[in-house]
Deep mutational scan, measured.
Amino acid sequence: IRKQWHEDITQDLRNHLVHKLVQAIFPTPDPAALKDRRMENLVAYARKVEGDMYESANNRAEYYHLLAEKIYKIQKELEEKRRT
């Protein structure tokens, strides 16, 4: 379902936000690492998460909020795993 606010969101912005999700899960300073085949699954997962939020959000603010919440949860989980 195409929503009115979707018209304001460019593909570049969506790609940028997918990249932010990927960085939250696997922070790497090396952009070449993103071309690694093992990263493809991670990028696919991040695209799916972003797509789900894009579809479920009712406006741009909610879209950003859902993504920020997801990134926060991912970082929290990773922190907890590092501690144990």
Rank of each mutant, 00 (worst) to 15 (best):
W5G: 08
V43F: 09
K70E: 08
V49F: 04
K70H: 08
K76E: 13
R83C: 13
I9T: 01
P27L: 07
P27I: 01
E55T: 04
L13S: 08
E50V: 00
D8P: 01
Q23I: 00
L17Y: 15
V18H: 00
A44R: 10
Q23N: 13
Y72W: 09
T84C: 12
D36Y: 05
E62N: 01
A32L: 12
R14T: 03
D12K: 02
D36S: 12
Y45G: 03
E80R: 06
K20W: 01
I1K: 11
L67K: 04
W5Q: 04
V49H: 00
A32Y: 09
I9V: 04
P29V: 14
L78G: 15
K76I: 14
A32Q: 11
R38G: 13
N58H: 06
H16S: 12
I1P: 14
A57N: 15
Q11F: 01
L67S: 03
E77S: 11
R82L: 07
R83K: 13
N59C: 05
E69I: 00
R83M: 13
K73I: 08
T10C: 01
E69F: 00
D12F: 06
I71D: 00
D36K: 07
K48T: 07
R60F: 12
Y72L: 13
V18A: 02
A33L: 09
Y45R: 13
R37F: 08
Q4T: 14
K48N: 08
Y64E: 15
L66K: 10
L67E: 00
K70I: 01
L13G: 13
V43N: 01
D36L: 04
P31K: 11
T84D: 14
D30K: 05
R60K: 14
R60G: 04
H65D: 12
V43Q: 06
S56Q: 15
V18C: 04
I1N: 14
M39K: 07
K35P: 15
R60W: 03
A44K: 09
S56F: 05
I71L: 09
A61E: 15
K70W: 05
S56H: 12
E40H: 10
R2L: 06
V43A: 04
K76D: 12
N15A: 07
L42V: 15
E77M: 04
D36A: 07
Q75W: 00
I9K: 00
R38N: 10
D12S: 07
A32H: 07
Y72M: 12
R47E: 07
E40G: 06
Y63K: 02
D52Q: 11
L67T: 04
K3R: 05
L13D: 15
Q75S: 09
N59D: 13
D36N: 08
V43W: 11
V43E: 08
Y63M: 00
P31G: 13
I25P: 04
T10I: 00
L42F: 08
R2K: 13
K20Y: 04
E62Y: 03
E62K: 04
P29C: 14
K20N: 03
